[in-house]
Design a protein around this nucleic acid. Structure first.
Length: 516
RNA sequence: GGCCCUAUCGACUAGUUGGUUAGGUCGCAACUCUCUCAAGGUUGAAACACGAGUUCGAAUCUCGUUGGGGCUACCA
């Protein structure tokens, strides 16, 4: 079997959407499992919609996820522009391959599979409007092309003259009339379409003198020896055109196989997942934070505290499953078990809760050491005066309560700073006269505890409280309120051990002094 | 509107050759543990869109309807 070669081919028109990352991921998994190559190609044939920075964004996003291309990107993270042994098909940016496409476009004209069209955008727009007002739609196809301005209808001399003039022209593919195109999709099976429902797509644009997606895509996939095209479902309607293009070039034998992935849908309501949904529902739609030219910030999974492994796992399971009950997979494990056969055909709704759960699962799998590092990475200044042993103890105390590392601080701030005030509801509930009388004795007892370790504290304190006939709840909750400032949190003995005897005594006397 | 894809709990999905008490995960609820809040443990509620047909038997096959999605640009 020949080596599998797949590609991810985004266009640099803005930040890469998480659905795009999923497409890249599935391509990567497929390639790696087959021992093949995963190629990155930039499809920048739309000069109008180009957004600076989006190419770098794609590369950085894939890099963060660990979805590293074998071809197309060099070691420094730049798109390869000149061919070399590792990147033989460079340049991998379509705008730099312009000269290649022109030749192929003209080859199709010479073969009679395509033709020059001279209709201006304004003329076509007018025809569309007219058709619309008559509740039909204008299609440039076998019916209409005979009455339009193109090399099929105009005299040869006229065509020649128009081509030599600056007035501009496009090349359109001549879709045959009433032919059934039989196609196959690796995920969806056999599909048939009658060509009479198709239109004569533009292959070469007048506006920016560049090929359209359809031409550039087919030519590059052929030249780059792509064996499987795994892409979004939005391309399914143009699959017949792509089949016809392979046929027109005489490339049927080496035509890649296609797999169309269903789209990611909104968590609620109708339609596909969009940037707006993230803003509205409070979750990221992009892998990395993106700031557009207006200074508007879009959240990213990375900046929102997701681990890249979790993000990859989330994406993998949106439209695919291994057929077993295992849900946590590393990237390498996914490479082992992935299969296109198990990709789900219908669209998947994104669910924020499940995404958070995944991150929590990965958080729990991290060592305390790793979590301390991550904690320091975002709260360096706050934790500056505390050693790793102390921070580690703090992390261990609260790690099971968090979905994200950025929740750590608010979960264990009481270990790094004494409470300045006390939750009024808690004070109201626990700071009663009967407790006020007891606390001095309790404080003295705590002071006498030796060693000051959680097991000793737990055991002896409970014994002390019970033999005196006081309620555990009353005393412990009051102590927690004094130590933490809030009426919820970890077990009191655990907190005491970490704080140490001196700090505990100090906080109890502070609290009694302040609350009176 | 036309064309194409698609349809199992609220969400993600298992169910691939027709026979299952339709399973798992998230979320939700209850109980439990307990010094609080979490976490943990146990349990529960919760689905085959609808209508025909084929068949002894349909979530599974066929057709239709309905819903959902996409495409319908000199955008990708």
């Amino acid at each position: 079997m020949t080596q599998r070669r797949v590609r991810f081919a985004p266009s640099p028109t803005g930040p890469l959407h998480m659905g795009g990352v999923r497409t890249a991921l599935y391509n990567y998994l497929y390639a790696k499992q087959a021992g093949g190559k995963f190629i990155l190609r930039i499809e920048d044939t739309d000069s109008q919609r180009f957004v600076p920075g989006s190419e770098e964004y794609v590369i950085e996003s894939l890099n963060w996820c660990g979805i590293l291309p074998d071809e197309g990107v060099d070691k420094d993270g730049n798109i390869v522009e000149t061919p070399c042994a590792e990147h033989p098909h460079a340049p991998y940016r379509q705008s730099q391959r312009k000269h290649i496409y022109r030749k192929y476009a003209e080859e199709l004209v010479a073969k009679g599979s395509a033709y020059y069209a001279f209709d201006t955008p304004e003329e076509l727009e007018k025809l569309r409007k007219e058709a619309e007002s008559e509740k039909s739609s204008f299609i440039y196809n076998y019916k209409s092309r005979t009455s339009l301005k193109n090399s099929l209808t105009l005299p040869a001399e006229e065509v020649k003259r128009r081509l030599s003039e600056e007035s501009g022209w496009t090349i359109r593919f001549q879709i045959p009339e009433n032919r059934v195109v039989k196609m196959n999709d690796l995920i969806r099976g056999d599909i048939e379409v009658n060509t009479s429902t198709l239109d004569d797509k533009v292959l070469w644009k007048r506006a920016d003198e560049l090929p359209t997606y359809h031409l550039a895509n087919i030519v590059d996939d052929h030249l780059m020896e792509i064996t499987e095209v795994i892409r979004g479902e939005e391309w399914l309607p143009s699959l017949p055109l792509h089949y016809l293009l392979y046929e027109a070039f005489g490339w049927e034998k080496s035509r890649p196989q296609f797999a169309h992935l269903s789209l990611l849908l909104k968590p609620d309501g109708k339609g596909k997942l969009s940037k707006r949904d993230g803003d509205r529902l409070g979750f990221p739609v992009f892998p990395l934070q993106w700031i557009n030219s207006d200074g508007e910030i879009s959240h990213g999974y990375r900046e929102d505290g997701y681990f890249p492994e979790a993000f990859v796992n989330i994406l993998a399971f949106l439209g695919w499953n291994p057929g077993t009950e295992q849900e946590i997979f590393t990237l390498d494990e996914l490479v082992e078990v992935f299969s296109l056969e198990r990709v789900v055909k219908s669209g998947a709704r994104f669910n924020h809760d499940k995404a958070k759960w995944y991150n929590q699962e990965y958080l729990r799998r991290k060592s305390t050491k790793e979590l301390v590092e991550a904690f320091r990475a975002i709260e360096g200044e706050y934790l500056a005066g505390f050693d790793d042993k102390y921070v580690g103890a703090a992390v261990e105390l609260i790690r099971d309560r968090a979905y994200f590392v950025h929740e750590f601080r608010s979960l264990c701030d009481f270990l790094f700073e004494a409470p300045e005030e006390y939750d009024p509801a808690g004070v109201n509930k626990f700071w009663k006269d009967e407790v006020k009388e007891i606390i001095p004795q309790v404080a003295d007892f705590i002071n006498s505890l030796e060693p000051f370790s959680k097991n000793i504290i737990e055991e002896k304190l409970e014994n002390f409280i019970k033999t005196n006939g006081w309620g555990m709840g009353k005393v412990m909750n009051t102590l927690r309120l004094f130590l933490v400032g809030r009426s919820s949190g970890p077990r009191v003995a655990d907190i005491m051990e970490i704080l140490g005897k001196k700090e505990v005594s100090q906080r109890i006397s502070n609290a009694t002094a302040r609350l009176g």
